[in-house]
């Protein structure tokens, strides 16, 4: 191949790659701008304070009310239950895999955990509705068929691999020298793990937890299927609730005419969702960067 032809091919390849990268940036910008425009339209009719602080959410009813707090409460409740499952279990799994497990066990367990992360969320949703809820009802007679508890627990199982895998990376990143220093002072394995390795990995572990929270808040299928669709301002996990994501699904599926105020609510809710997960992701990235700096 001549020099000229080679240079030409190189340039074509470079431009093709640049275009591919450009597409994802353009799509992101497009999504954000559609969200922003529709949200702006929504707030021309409903005041932001009514939206953010109102406690009744009935945009599809004749008596319309646009207080988003019931949806926020539903989202936070389910996410909190999920985090209560995923963070302790995920962290303990990570500690076991990183500090205690022999290499052979790690080689088996890590891929198995990653399979958990690959199960389609719709499967988790029906697992929550048709298996976990009936099971829980035998213990908790007051539990509704749709509730926050069961999807919360199942979501916790779903995000567990994420917590454990990222935490394990953080623990693994703690320099061996720190462990040796602790052992050389007469620390036991547990003292080394709890008082040296875990604190040293804390920023990385926090990043994992925050990313998992972001994932829980944005998770849609499980809550749509198993949590019910009743926007309700409550902290009771036994009754049906509706999350922000489930509400967006509800409106998108239904026969709400495009361009109406009721239709625009999903963009306002979507914007709120986007801003909160975006902030969480930023926080998580910031923590991870800090962790990397400490042990560069």
């Amino acid at each position: 191949m001549s020099r000229r032809r080679r240079d030409f091919v190189e340039r074509v390849v470079e431009w093709a790659l640049r275009a591919c990268a450009g597409v994802s940036i353009l799509v992101t910008l497009g999504i954000v701008s559609v969200l922003a425009v529709e949200t702006f339209q929504f707030f021309r009719e409903v005041s932001p304070s009514e939206f953010l602080f109102g406690t009744v959410w009935t945009p599809l009813f004749f008596q319309k009310s646009f207080g988003v707090l019931p949806l926020v409460a539903g989202t936070l409740l389910v996410s909190a239950i999920a985090m209560a499952v995923a963070v302790p279990a995920g962290l303990l799994t990570a500690v076991y895999l990183s500090e205690y497990a022999p290499a052979t066990v790690r080689r088996v367990v890590k891929p198995v955990l990653e399979v958990l992360a690959g199960v389609p969320t719709v499967v988790y949703g029906y697992f929550a509705l048709l298996f976990v809820t009936p099971l829980l009802q035998q213990v908790l007679p007051g539990l509704s068929g749709f509730n926050a508890l069961s999807p919360g627990l199942v979501m916790g199982i779903m995000i567990l691999p994420m917590v454990s895998s990222l935490s394990e990376d953080a623990l693994h990143g703690v320099p061996r020298g720190l462990r040796e220093a602790a052992y050389a002072l007469g620390a036991t394995k547990m003292q080394t793990t709890t008082r040296v390795v875990l604190p040293a990995a804390l920023s990385g572990i926090s990043a994992a937890g925050i990313l998992a929270a972001s994932r829980a808040i944005g998770e849609t299928m499980i809550v749509t299927i198993a949590a019910g669709q009743q926007p309700r301002l409550t902290a009771n996990p036994l009754v049906p609730v509706e999350t922000m994501t489930a509400y967006i699904v509800q409106v998108s599926l239904g026969d709400t005419p495009a361009g109406t105020l009721a239709y625009r609510t999903i963009f306002a809710v979507g914007m709120l969702l986007f801003v909160s997960t975006f902030m969480l992701n930023l926080a998580s990235n910031w923590l991870r960067e800090r962790f990397r700096e400490e042990y560069a």
Partner: peptide, 13 residues
């Protein structure tokens, strides 16, 4: 039997 290592390894404390 205490030990000091080649690369200084203070705890991040």
């Amino acid at each position: 039997v205490g030990m000091v290592f080649q690369k200084s390894n203070p705890f991040p404390k």
